[in-house]
């Protein structure tokens, strides 16, 4: 298939970017979206031009590294990661717009690559459990009901890709933070620090410059791991409760 690509090119975080149009030909509809970009980049390199920079790592839908806002949607038309998106989702002759995630908290480093370390700092603020190191604990030492384990796992599947932020009209990170807060807060090991965790993670989220939630539901509709909006309600509950009852004055 032949395609017209309108790709955001930006030299670095200090310069302004712009869309540049490229044509790619003879792309297999079985290739993945990133493979299609690989083909484009090989062509650019052969011509001595600078290849288009984009993030990727596992290309298996599990690491959360790939991004790309494709034709107005994060990770493109399917509810999956960009690396798991295939060219059969497009038609030959189509124009495809490819942009980086756009948020004040995710500055563009180059082309389609953004700096998502704001998420790392939110995790550092509370997305952990404190344990004394020592021997490996027995796996069944702390009984966890199957239902709780499953629910925690559903939230733990968040890969931190940032599509929720990219999709949200307010560039809000509520879905991501709520996934992390819910995952840890449900488990006995995480309950100990549940209140300070939600307080600190929300404070860091606000400090990073993400917007507030308007409950549009765009995040959950685009999340490749199908984290539900109910998680945000739960986080609101947890946060309000923690603020009123925690001992952090």
């Amino acid at each position: 298939m032949d395609l017209t690509l309108k790709i955001w090119r930006q030299k670095n975080s200090n310069t302004e970017g712009k869309f540049v149009t490229y044509e790619v030909k003879d792309i297999s509809h079985e290739s993945s979206f990133l493979e299609m970009l690989d083909v484009l980049n090989i062509g650019l390199e052969e011509k001595g031009e600078e290849p288009v920079h984009f993030d990727h790592d596992c290309r298996e839908g599990i690491c959360g590294m790939c991004s790309l806002y494709i034709n107005g949607k994060p990770h493109g038309p399917q509810q999956t990661t960009t690396c798991q998106l295939h060219m059969r989702s497009f038609k030959s002759g189509q124009t495809i717009w490819i942009e980086p995630w756009r948020a004040k908290a995710f500055p563009v480093i180059k082309d389609l690559v953004t700096d998502r370390s704001a998420f790392d700092r939110i995790i550092q603020a509370g997305g952990y459990i404190s344990v004394n190191t020592g021997g490996v604990p027995d796996a069944n030492e702390i009984p966890i009901p199957r239902k709780i384990a499953d629910e925690a796992m559903d939230s733990a599947t968040c890969i931190g890709c940032g599509a929720c932020v990219a999709a949200c009209k307010n560039a809000s990170a509520m879905l991501f933070v709520s996934a992390k807060v819910t995952h840890l807060g449900l488990l006995p090991q995480g309950k100990v620090e549940a209140k300070t965790r939600v307080e600190n993670m929300v404070a860091q989220m606000d400090a990073e410059g993400f917007g507030a939630c308007t409950n549009t539901g765009a995040c959950a509709a685009e999340c490749p791991k199908e984290i539900p909006l109910a998680n945000i309600a739960k986080m609101n509950r947890d946060f309000i409760g923690a603020r009123l009852t925690s001992e952090n004055v």
Binding site: G17, K73, E99, R102, A103, G211, T216, G217
Partner: peptide
């Protein structure tokens, strides 16, 4: 202010009312 640079192409109507 959370999104200083706007998207060039948006399909928001496909994911939110």
């Amino acid at each position: 202010t959370a999104r200083p640079v706007k998207y060039g192409y948006s399909a928001a109507s496909t994911n939110s009312p």
